[in-house]
Amino acid sequence: MLPNQNYTVSVQNLPDYFTLSPATAQATFDEGTTEQQLEFCLSATQQVNDLNVRLLPINESRPGFASNYQLVVQNMGTATTAAQVTIQYDSQFQTYASANPEPSTTGSNLLTFAIPEIHPFELQYVNVTFQNAAPPVLIGGEALTLTASISPDVNDATPLDNSFNLVQPVVNSYDPNDKQVLQGSQVHIDQAGEYLDYIIRFQNTGSASAVNVRIADALHANLDWNTFSPVSSSHNYRLAITENNQVSFIFDNINLPHESENEAASHGFVAYKIKPVQTVEVGDVVSGNASIFFDYNAPIITNSASTTFVESLGVAESGVFESLSIYPNPAKDILRIQADASIHISE
């Protein structure tokens, strides 16, 4: 709860091709005031095309079970546009089951979704379900690779976020309350200026419905809180950021059923993206866990999601590694090497 006083409000993380009027606004909270509406006017200073896409794993991938994903499409440009989004997947390990909205076309390993229009700053979502192959075709310790792409990408201001590669480990059992960084445990230092995507998933495994759920997430010192941007969630929530790095996702009156009452509805998630600080160097680490509070119970502490910034060896001498996907990392029994195109290496 904010103390009763005057506050200066500004808009953070605004692209430099928009101007804001006014630059700041004043909000006054006194006794009995819990909400105020402030108005800002955004104006584009130039015409910019800027679409981006993300692919979120809503649940873990297990052999023989269904995996749910959410496509998140955003228009950060200055004009309303139409778009087309594709998901490429490995048909050896997964088969398409369903989607909402449905794809405009389906292929043996490709789904295409048509978006008639998407407005500036608008987010649109596509929920997709795949059926995973059963053992021995797919076993725990392997990984599923999916790639989402969005077009048109001609003259896009940030073309790197027009595609999103998701490498998802296959597990046999899992903790339903977890935190993941979708870029994985290592990020090349050349990508240090790009967003890191986090998803925190939770499930009510108690014996009664949870009226309220709160997720507390302390941002690591190597993350720039000014670039924090919500991406998606399973339920409505309010967001509180204090002391520049203490983030709380507050699900008031979520009334989340317990697992025995309704297993499918007992799950929830929240996803956000954030950039590292500009001073990160090779060897620097971003890590952190989350605390999940169900009503007045003691918090459930998730695993720690950790990313290290690395400098790959040999990439400057050869472009081969840019065409290879090597997974899972770490590997136990099987290491898969997948090439995007034919590769010829001569001595």
Results as ranks from 00 to 15, higher is better:
residue 1 M to W: 07
residue 2 L to T: 01
residue 6 N to C: 03
residue 8 T to Q: 15
residue 11 V to C: 13
residue 19 T to R: 09
residue 21 S to A: 13
residue 21 S to M: 09
residue 30 D to M: 05
residue 31 E to H: 13
residue 32 G to Q: 08
residue 34 T to M: 06
residue 40 F to G: 07
residue 41 C to R: 12
residue 42 L to T: 02
residue 43 S to W: 00
residue 43 S to P: 00
residue 45 T to P: 08
residue 46 Q to T: 11
residue 46 Q to P: 03
residue 46 Q to H: 03
residue 50 D to F: 03
residue 50 D to A: 05
residue 51 L to I: 03
residue 52 N to T: 13
residue 52 N to I: 05
residue 56 L to E: 11
residue 57 P to V: 04
residue 57 P to S: 12
residue 58 I to M: 13
residue 58 I to N: 11
residue 63 P to V: 10
residue 63 P to Q: 04
residue 64 G to R: 03
residue 67 S to E: 13
residue 69 Y to M: 05
residue 73 V to N: 09
residue 77 G to P: 06
residue 81 T to C: 12
residue 85 V to G: 02
residue 89 Y to Q: 02
residue 90 D to L: 03
residue 93 F to G: 06
residue 97 A to V: 11
residue 99 A to W: 09
residue 101 P to F: 10
residue 105 T to C: 01
residue 106 T to H: 02
residue 110 L to V: 00
residue 110 L to T: 00
residue 111 L to G: 03
residue 112 T to H: 00
residue 113 F to V: 01
residue 114 A to N: 15
residue 115 I to Q: 12
residue 115 I to T: 09
residue 119 H to F: 12
residue 119 H to W: 11
residue 122 E to C: 10
residue 124 Q to K: 14
residue 128 V to Y: 13
residue 128 V to P: 12
residue 129 T to G: 10
residue 130 F to S: 10
residue 135 P to Q: 13
residue 136 P to W: 08
residue 138 L to K: 02
residue 138 L to I: 10
residue 143 A to E: 13
residue 149 S to V: 08
residue 155 N to C: 03
residue 157 A to H: 10
residue 157 A to I: 01
residue 168 Q to C: 08
residue 169 P to K: 12
residue 172 N to L: 14
residue 173 S to I: 14
residue 174 Y to E: 14
residue 180 Q to T: 10
residue 186 Q to E: 15
residue 187 V to K: 03
residue 189 I to A: 02
residue 193 G to R: 03
residue 195 Y to T: 05
residue 201 R to P: 04
residue 202 F to N: 04
residue 204 N to Q: 10
residue 206 G to R: 05
residue 208 A to W: 08
residue 209 S to G: 10
residue 209 S to K: 12
residue 219 L to M: 11
residue 220 H to Y: 08
residue 223 L to Y: 06
residue 228 F to P: 06
residue 229 S to D: 14
residue 235 H to R: 09
residue 235 H to F: 13
residue 235 H to P: 01
residue 237 Y to R: 02
residue 240 A to E: 15
residue 246 Q to C: 01
residue 247 V to F: 07
residue 251 F to A: 05
residue 252 D to G: 10
residue 258 H to G: 04
residue 260 S to G: 06
residue 261 E to C: 00
residue 261 E to L: 10
residue 267 H to N: 14
residue 268 G to N: 08
residue 268 G to M: 09
residue 273 K to C: 08
residue 273 K to L: 04
residue 279 T to S: 15
residue 283 G to M: 02
residue 283 G to P: 05
residue 283 G to T: 07
residue 286 V to N: 04
residue 291 S to E: 15
residue 293 F to E: 13
residue 294 F to N: 07
residue 295 D to E: 09
residue 295 D to G: 08
residue 297 N to R: 13
residue 298 A to I: 05
residue 301 I to Q: 09
residue 302 T to M: 03
residue 303 N to F: 03
residue 303 N to E: 08
residue 304 S to P: 00
residue 305 A to P: 02
residue 306 S to I: 07
residue 308 T to E: 15
residue 310 V to C: 00
residue 310 V to F: 11
residue 313 L to P: 02
residue 321 F to S: 13
residue 323 S to K: 12
residue 323 S to V: 04
residue 325 S to N: 12
residue 326 I to G: 01
residue 327 Y to S: 12
residue 328 P to K: 02
residue 328 P to T: 06
residue 330 P to M: 02
residue 330 P to A: 04
residue 332 K to C: 05
residue 333 D to G: 05
residue 335 L to N: 02
residue 336 R to A: 12
residue 337 I to S: 03
residue 337 I to R: 04
residue 341 A to S: 15
residue 341 A to D: 15
residue 343 I to T: 11
residue 343 I to K: 05
residue 345 I to K: 00
